Computed example of a mutant assay.
Amino acid sequence: MSYSGKIVWNKVKMVVFDVDGTLYEQSKLRKKMLFALLGYYALRPWRLGEMRLLQRFRREREKHPAYAGPDVENAQYAWCAEGTSYPVAKIKRVVQQWIFDYPNQYLSDCTYPGVKEFFNALRVNHIKIGVYSDYKAHDKLRAMGLQADAVVASTDPEIDRLKPDPKGLLYLADLMRVAPEECLFIGDRPELDGACAERANMPYLIVEKQPFNSFNFYDNLTKLLTTDLKPTTTTYESDIYAS
């Protein structure tokens, strides 16, 4: 269920985060990456096809929502290679360089304001932190200075499912020994993250679209969490409105 009303924080045992577009602003990162790519390939015009290859990789992945394995990790490269002259090995190399490795140096600058403080508030209040990403996320989290109790990706062999298939969320809940309804999933795409949570019977929030310099989604969550969980004889509930 989407939170269109109230979150009772003392019933939340784990918060699960998507990564891309949820913990950092993708548009800001993409601008930095565009300059980097143009600068790199301007000096190597004979390799401009690799830029189109990156676009194709993302596009082909988007064409397979809820895809169920086996071996999603390698299937995503096979989709990209189909109908082209590019070998899978080259696609993997280019994707690794420009999607998984190079952008990490910019992530700290693109991390949404308030994310670290919200992570800290969750830890102080003994709420577990999970991450369920479309792509492998350990290096991204490290680049943002964030730590989670459990991290899974759609391409992990234990999952082998793309969103909105709910297996990743259900796997995390089982791994951390909490019920799906005791979790809160935070994502940025209703058609994928929201649908994924609904299929898992897990409450969720969609990150509000705000200008980066005035982004206060996580600051507001931190304030409401810390207010609701103050030692008191009264039960408080916080109003959170999903986008």
Rank of each mutant, 00 (worst) to 15 (best):
G187E: 15
K230T: 13
L205T: 00
A179V: 02
D20A: 04
R59V: 09
Y40H: 06
T111D: 08
P70C: 01
Q97I: 14
L38F: 06
P166Y: 11
K116Y: 02
Q147R: 15
A148I: 10
A242V: 15
G187S: 10
L184E: 01
K116Q: 12
A75S: 11
Y171F: 04
P190S: 03
A179L: 09
D149T: 07
M51G: 07
L29E: 04
F119L: 02
K136W: 08
F212D: 03
K28Q: 10
N213L: 08
E25D: 14
D18M: 08
P203R: 03
E50I: 01
D219G: 00
E158A: 09
Y241A: 14
R59C: 13
N74W: 12
L169C: 07
V115R: 00
V88Q: 14
P65I: 03
E237I: 05
K128W: 01
G145K: 02
P157M: 08
V72F: 00
R44M: 05
T111Y: 07
T111F: 01
Y3R: 10
I206E: 00
W9S: 05
V15Q: 08
W79D: 14
V151M: 06
V152R: 01
A195D: 10
L170Q: 11
Q76M: 14
M14T: 07
F212V: 04
S238K: 04
D109F: 14
S85Q: 08
F17I: 07
K136L: 11
N120Q: 10
F215A: 06
A173S: 08
K163Y: 06
V72K: 02
S214R: 09
D239W: 10
D18N: 11
A197T: 04
G39T: 11
A197H: 02
I240T: 12
T222C: 02
H138W: 10
E73I: 09
Y241G: 12
V207C: 01
L205Y: 02
E182Q: 09
Y77M: 09
Y112D: 09
A197P: 01
R58A: 15
A75K: 14
E182S: 09
R59L: 13
T227F: 06
G5K: 02
R30T: 15
R199L: 08
K92T: 14
V94R: 02
A68N: 05
Y67K: 13
A75G: 13
S4D: 14
L141H: 06
R58G: 07
A42H: 03
Y77K: 13
G39Y: 09
A148F: 15
P164F: 03
L205D: 05
A200G: 01
G168T: 08
L205G: 07
A66W: 06
K136E: 10
R47L: 06
L54A: 00
T227K: 06
V207R: 07
D239R: 15
C80Q: 12
T155F: 04
T227Y: 02
D134W: 13
Y112R: 07
Y86P: 12
I127F: 12
D71L: 07
A143G: 04
S108D: 10
D109C: 05
T84F: 10
A66T: 12
G49V: 05
Y241H: 13
F100D: 15
F217P: 13
I99G: 04
D228H: 05
Y112W: 13
E117V: 02
E182A: 09
V72P: 00
L229R: 06
A195G: 09
N10M: 00
R56E: 13
E82R: 11
P87F: 09
R123V: 01
R123W: 02
R161H: 15
S85V: 15
